[in-house]
Design a protein around this nucleic acid. Sequence first.
DNA 1: ACAATCGTGTAATGGATATTACACCTTCGC
DNA 2: GCGAAGGTGTAATATCCATTACACGATTGT
Lengths: 204, 204
Amino acid sequence: MNDEFECDRLDRRRRAIMDAARALFTEQGFERTTLGQIVERAGGSLATVYKLFGNKEGLLDAVVFDKAVSGENLIREFADCGASPANTLRRLAAVLYERFLDPKDVALVRIVIARSIEDADFARRFFETTAMHTRKGLEQMFARWEAQGVRLHGPPDMLAEVFLGLMVSDMQTDAISHGVVARPSAERIAARIEFFLRGAGLEE
Amino acid sequence: MNDEFECDRLDRRRRAIMDAARALFTEQGFERTTLGQIVERAGGSLATVYKLFGNKEGLLDAVVFDKAVSGENLIREFADCGASPANTLRRLAAVLYERFLDPKDVALVRIVIARSIEDADFARRFFETTAMHTRKGLEQMFARWEAQGVRLHGPPDMLAEVFLGLMVSDMQTDAISHGVVARPSAERIAARIEFFLRGAGLEE
DNA sequence: ACAATCGTGTAATGGATATTACACCTTCGC
DNA sequence: GCGAAGGTGTAATATCCATTACACGATTGT
């Protein structure tokens, strides 16, 4: 009972600190946020922060890589559910918007970009576990369709890049620049999807 | 002769300070760069920096908005030179890559994003004088074509968004994340252009 | 050549903050 | 209940840096 309780206590403290840190980092940026503010919001003490995370950078690391959800599996689910390519892409688009324009995600990306100026490796690790996975997932999806006899205008890797660029990249750039962005309307999404389907040779 | 020389001297000093500041800001980020480093590289003195720019933020402002080239005129030149829409877009693509993937520009964008966490207005001003202009320019180009009887799949504003998203946004996101990005190959550009032409209904 | 103007270099000032040290108190096993 | 282990709060430490103050020297118009 000792270990479990101990672990529970530590975990709860860890989570409280990380939650406070994430909130403050995304509100004010990394450098402007002081450990004092974090402790003030999370309760506990400075000493605990240093015990759990080593230093301020360690805390940022923990916050950013907390839940690196893999986009690869997400996409595989959609690709394997038997719908036509056109319909699969239509449903996938909504998920991508959810994923790439989520304010929490966007805020995190901004922090990573800010930090990447000083620590290039930090950004590389982040994007390899997020955007890269999504792109790879899309690429595999297109490749599987091609193997099943679907005729595509262009190689799978190009289509994956283009799909992401066409559907979300410009809005993501906007979101990153402005902090938030309005969810695109259904019509707007639909227009882009149809555009992609024509370009890829997938009109029905 | 007095005024001219004075002005010349001040201008030269101004330029030297801004050049040093831009270099250091893009290398290390805004917060990590000290005014001491800037003066050390530019020569002159701290007092001059404060006289010319007021404070550190004023210097950043001057650096970022130094040469806010308008993308609107750039695009109008291309649109007015009489080539077919397809050929115009083909030549325009190369210019956009030059513009959006230029390492100097990318480095600036990173700084703006980093700063935007603390100062949202700063980012808004920047993107209104750069990306927004380019988008508007594209939109007007498509609208003019439509007025001339060219049949397009979709409204001009959507096409402008999509063209930017399709051609550069994903690479720009990469560039912003990683700092630099390899210039895309001619084939890669060509493939995307043809994709866009199909989607927009502009195949020849 | 002279005196004034203005940039220049140096050296405070003052505040902020990451990090560490330390003494206290809670919590847990026995 | 008791003692140990370890979290907690507070208070130094120590550095770093934007900003200001000041005295010096160069440059210029007369």
